[in-house]
Computed example of a mutant assay.
Amino acid sequence: MSDPMSDPMSDPIYVPALPARPNGLVAYGALTPDVRAVVTPLWTVPPRAGGARTRRKGALHRPDPDPLALVGHLRTVLHRMVGVQCGRPAWVDVRHAEGEPRHLLAEFRSLLVRTPLRPVTGVERDARQQEASAEVARASGNGLGLRVSPQDLPHERLRDAVGSLLERIAFARCPVDLLLDLGAVDEDHRDPSRTALRALDALGSLHPWRTVVLLAGAFPETHPRGYGAPLTETYRTDRFLPDLLRRAVGRQGAHPVHGDYGAHDPASADRVSDTGPDPFRGALRYTTARTFLVGEVPAGPDHHVTVRRLAREIVASPDFRGAGYSAGDRWLSTCADGRGPLGTGHPDAWICAGHAQHLTHVARELRRHS
């Protein structure tokens, strides 16, 4: 029997929903082969310009001020995704560009057909987008991702909405993946658990899904206030998912896969940039077995002093796994002992390190308990 941690064609046991920015793409590319074999990302292309976006139905769409630049942005991101996937499948969600004139996405969709990437649609999206995504899925043979937020609709209406979408795209005759996106969850995870199980009951038997993914979590959007200086520890809200997944096996035929948002908050892909003073994003992050260690890095000429101090505190923690564990752990160790760049890099480097160690830890823990 082949080992799923070494078989490059094995099914995923972990689906991180990541913004398709260089820091996330580099972090995924830095994963060791045993981890990459069981990790299938859900990439979301962030908006190119403007303020934070939302995927709520009826939310105002702010058009990109430079449509030609948007086309170039989509082309560049797709090229990077294809390069880092190295022939492996992944889902790609371009929801932040879907309100643009349809002809602007034509080139992107034509390019997508020739990649291992799977387009994503949802019940809140325009029927033309749903049909166009299904057409790409049919032409590529890679299948289609259906991203659903179960908390947005009563479960009876959700089942009806998903059923109607499936009828609309039935012409594609392609595999469909159900991506249940719970968004941010807090420490009182009883309500998200009930929401997830009810959604699985409502939708699990509706279609012979190729893959069912349950996304929830994770890192806080604003800096947590807690014990420790300068490092803060906060509860890992994604930890309830593995137990929930075990309880869900066999419910209406669903066998869900674990998913979260990497080393970021769930809304990170709705923002143009990972950097800036508001919301909180300038930080070092580390995932332990039960908590997140988060250290804020205030802007200023001496920020490198804070970064090295935070890195030393993480490396000195009993939860640090050693420089050889992942590319992220190696970066933290190098930064802590002073061998890193003089200025200790940019927030993109900190987020990249956070993603690399988080993805590695979660994938290996899920493999160990599967």
Results as ranks from 00 to 15, higher is better:
8 P>G: 07
9 M>G: 11
12 P>S: 13
15 V>F: 13
21 R>A: 03
23 N>P: 15
26 V>T: 13
30 A>Q: 15
37 A>V: 10
40 T>G: 06
41 P>F: 04
43 W>M: 08
45 V>M: 06
45 V>F: 03
49 A>S: 15
53 R>C: 09
56 R>S: 12
57 K>C: 04
58 G>Y: 07
59 A>F: 06
62 R>Q: 11
69 A>N: 05
73 H>D: 13
75 R>P: 00
84 V>L: 04
91 W>H: 10
92 V>H: 03
92 V>W: 03
93 D>A: 11
95 R>K: 07
100 E>G: 01
105 L>I: 03
107 E>G: 08
108 F>T: 10
109 R>L: 06
110 S>V: 00
114 R>I: 04
117 L>K: 07
119 P>M: 00
120 V>Q: 08
121 T>Y: 05
121 T>F: 03
122 G>F: 01
123 V>A: 10
129 Q>P: 01
131 E>A: 12
136 V>C: 09
139 A>N: 14
139 A>W: 06
140 S>Y: 01
141 G>C: 08
146 L>M: 06
155 H>R: 08
156 E>K: 13
158 L>P: 06
162 V>S: 00
166 L>E: 14
167 E>F: 12
171 F>H: 06
172 A>K: 07
173 R>S: 12
181 D>R: 07
185 V>W: 02
187 E>M: 07
191 D>W: 15
194 R>G: 06
195 T>P: 03
203 L>C: 02
204 G>D: 05
206 L>V: 04
206 L>S: 08
210 R>T: 05
212 V>N: 08
213 V>W: 13
215 L>V: 05
223 H>G: 03
228 G>N: 03
228 G>M: 04
231 L>M: 13
233 E>D: 00
241 L>H: 02
245 L>D: 01
255 H>R: 14
257 V>S: 13
262 G>K: 14
263 A>N: 05
265 D>N: 09
266 P>I: 07
266 P>K: 07
267 A>M: 11
268 S>M: 15
276 G>V: 04
277 P>Q: 11
280 F>A: 15
286 Y>I: 00
295 G>N: 09
305 V>S: 10
311 A>G: 01
316 A>V: 00
316 A>W: 00
318 P>K: 01
319 D>C: 01
322 G>R: 10
325 Y>T: 14
326 S>H: 02
326 S>D: 12
328 G>P: 03
332 L>N: 06
332 L>F: 02
335 C>I: 05
343 G>L: 15
345 G>E: 03
345 G>K: 11
349 A>M: 12
359 L>T: 01
363 A>R: 06
368 R>C: 07
